[in-house]
Nucleic acid binder design. Structure first.
Lengths: 164, 164
DNA sequence: TATTGTTATACTCTATAACTATA
DNA sequence: TATAGTTATAGAGTATAACAATA
């Protein structure tokens, strides 16, 4: 292999005319992780924009969703299920509790543990937020994916997530 | 809709026996962004592990790749192409220059700008790192994706990335 | 006036160590 | 001894404002 690898053009980029001239991604284009990262950033940005009026970030939404689907689950298991360090989970849950969306209760049978629940307000809030996401955010994502097979796409994402 | 949305089971999770009992993702399972994020984290983790001996993070690799494919490109355009804030790009490039992988040169015709190049060491380093990634990291990703259509997968990722 | 590179700053996210109370 | 929740802390990543040099 010479100085230029086969997938790069590397024209010395003089470009004296005012045309913007597209930047060549070079070997970056062959890295799945790069494409995945750009897609993930765009999707999260769209999520955050969609949830602006709810003031809810992706991590906060995920905590509420897990608690609702598993009421009474121990704090450590919720953080573990989401891959969130238990030390970092404390402040995250504190804020949800301050906003009266979730609550800690003493776990029956283990006085070290907290059992987590949504408040009535939290249940309603999550329902509304999720409906809004489906109607706007997910709807936009489906439009972007177009005719592509969404189910097959999700299957491949899950296979990658199972790497570790 | 009642207190429980249609896609959650929400059995009160008493679970007194010692079986670990899988955590229900609830409505999180219906969010594309969640699956995308988990996949991206797993892929980046695999990248970082693969590049341990090279001490090269994804962002550093991307900078080297863009510079190699577009030698002489202005600093602001490199950071812009990667979606990196120009203020944050300074320290990133400083480190690559300290390691003698890239260099700043005065841009011909504009004394405000820097034109970026790889050093000879940077060219060789990137070639070797990229070959190593292809042989190990990307190979593992392909194995994980299995029979799935990689090209279709990349197409859908790019459509999502084009959201904003 | 606008742009380029830079510094300073702040806020989020993430990771580790250590403490306490329980088990 | 080990585990659950917590605090403190440090490192990345990211965002904005402002400055000097130059366009």
């Amino acid at each position: 292999m010479t100085r230029q690898s086969s997938h790069t053009k590397a024209t010395p980029t003089t470009d004296p005319d005012d045309a913007p001239a597209k930047v060549d991604l070079g070997c970056l284009d062959g890295l799945l992780g790069y494409r995945l990262r750009r897609a993930q950033l765009a999707v999260f940005q769209d999520f955050i924009t969609s949830m602006r009026d709810y003031d809810l970030r992706p991590a906060q939404f995920s905590v509420l969703a897990i608690i609702r689907a598993n009421p009474g689950l121990k704090q450590s298991r919720v953080s573990e299920a989401l891959g969130i360090n238990r030390a970092n989970f404390v402040a995250l849950l504190d804020e949800l509790e301050t906003r009266d969306l979730a609550r800690r209760e003493p776990a029956p049978g283990d006085r070290r543990s907290n059992a987590l629940f949504l408040t009535a307000k939290g249940e309603a809030f999550l329902d509304e937020a999720y409906r809004h996401l489906q109607a706007h955010h997910e709807r936009r994502l489906d439009a972007a994916l177009g005719a592509g097979d969404r189910q097959q796409f999700l299957t491949l994402l899950d296979r990658l997530a199972a790497l570790d």
